[in-house]
Amino acid sequence: MTGKQELARFLRGRREQLVPADVGLPGEPSRRTLGLRREEVAELAHMSVDYYARLEQARGPRPSPRILDALTGVFRLTPAERGHMFRLAGTEATPLAAPVRTVRPHVTALLRRIPDTAAIVTDALCDVIAANASASAVFGRDYGARPNLARRRFLGSTMESSGAEEFAHILVARLRRSTDRYPHDPALARLLAELRAGSEEFTQIWDTGPVHAPGHRSKTLIHPEAGPLRVNCDVLTVPDDDQQVVFVTADPGSPSERALRQLVSAGRDFSAR
């Protein structure tokens, strides 16, 4: 099967998976078409019906990045699906406009199902875009207001930690990766300018080009109320959205685990008042 044929099959499959309501179009009780019509896709993507039909019939020319990005929006493709479509088209993928800043429902549900574990979700800018009640109890109530971890680490007061230097390198490495993926995102540009202007440490680390992969790390947090807490930080990546879920736990039966449980319990009591 040729690249054109594979692209045609991919486009047909995505079109047939959608219904009018998915893209804001009114439904029709007597509708017989499986999924969207070609005419509807063409209109939403701002291209001629003939051009789109030729793409689905493997008769069209190599589509431009503009055409493929338009189809990405119509079909609501994930970054992974978008990259796959560009490869099928034999076209170099353009940088993504901006990172995903919403959390998928199943990830939010995961945070609710582990109430005794402090868990947060961060996006490609290191913004905390979701946190459960336990995370707010352990790290501070502003975690519910979507703080930025890089700003907290380099520009503001943050909880002392035995791994503060390593954490700084991890944050910078992630932001460097984000500049490669989202070179035109204004929010990322503003964040980097703010960090460079306000932190010599950030600039120095940035210039070294650090590389860090998410994984398991242990550190000691100095909590203002509970004192030293020896915790484990484990990261689950959400590749399609360029997000990370961070779980903070303590070894079972340890003094730190008991202290974490007390903090979480106190946080629940506070919320119930």
Score class of each variant (00 low, 15 high):
8 A>K: 06
8 A>L: 03
13 G>A: 09
14 R>W: 09
16 E>T: 13
21 A>K: 08
24 G>L: 13
29 P>C: 06
31 R>S: 13
32 R>V: 11
34 L>H: 11
36 L>W: 08
40 E>L: 10
41 V>S: 09
41 V>W: 10
43 E>G: 15
46 H>W: 10
46 H>T: 10
52 Y>A: 03
59 R>C: 11
63 P>L: 02
64 S>V: 03
66 R>T: 15
71 L>R: 04
72 T>L: 06
75 F>D: 10
81 E>H: 07
84 H>E: 15
87 R>F: 03
87 R>L: 13
88 L>D: 11
88 L>Y: 09
88 L>E: 07
89 A>Y: 01
93 A>D: 03
98 A>V: 09
102 T>P: 08
102 T>M: 12
107 V>M: 01
111 L>W: 05
112 R>E: 13
112 R>P: 15
112 R>L: 14
115 P>E: 04
115 P>L: 00
119 A>D: 01
121 V>Q: 08
121 V>W: 01
123 D>R: 01
130 A>Y: 02
130 A>C: 06
132 N>P: 03
136 S>H: 04
137 A>Q: 09
137 A>K: 13
140 G>V: 12
143 Y>C: 07
145 A>H: 12
147 P>Q: 01
150 A>C: 11
150 A>N: 08
151 R>H: 11
159 M>H: 09
160 E>K: 15
161 S>F: 09
163 G>M: 09
168 A>V: 05
168 A>F: 00
171 L>F: 04
173 A>L: 10
173 A>F: 04
173 A>C: 03
174 R>D: 10
177 R>G: 15
178 S>T: 11
178 S>Y: 02
182 Y>W: 13
183 P>C: 12
186 P>R: 06
186 P>L: 02
188 L>C: 08
188 L>W: 02
189 A>T: 14
191 L>S: 02
195 L>C: 01
195 L>K: 14
206 W>Y: 01
213 A>N: 12
214 P>M: 00
215 G>S: 01
217 R>L: 13
218 S>R: 14
221 L>R: 10
222 I>C: 15
223 H>R: 04
230 R>W: 01
232 N>V: 11
233 C>E: 15
234 D>A: 14
237 T>C: 04
238 V>I: 07
238 V>Q: 09
240 D>Y: 09
242 D>F: 06
242 D>W: 03
245 V>I: 12
246 V>N: 05
248 V>H: 02
249 T>H: 07
250 A>P: 01
255 P>E: 00
257 E>H: 07
260 L>R: 11
262 Q>K: 10
265 S>A: 07
265 S>T: 14
272 A>Y: 10
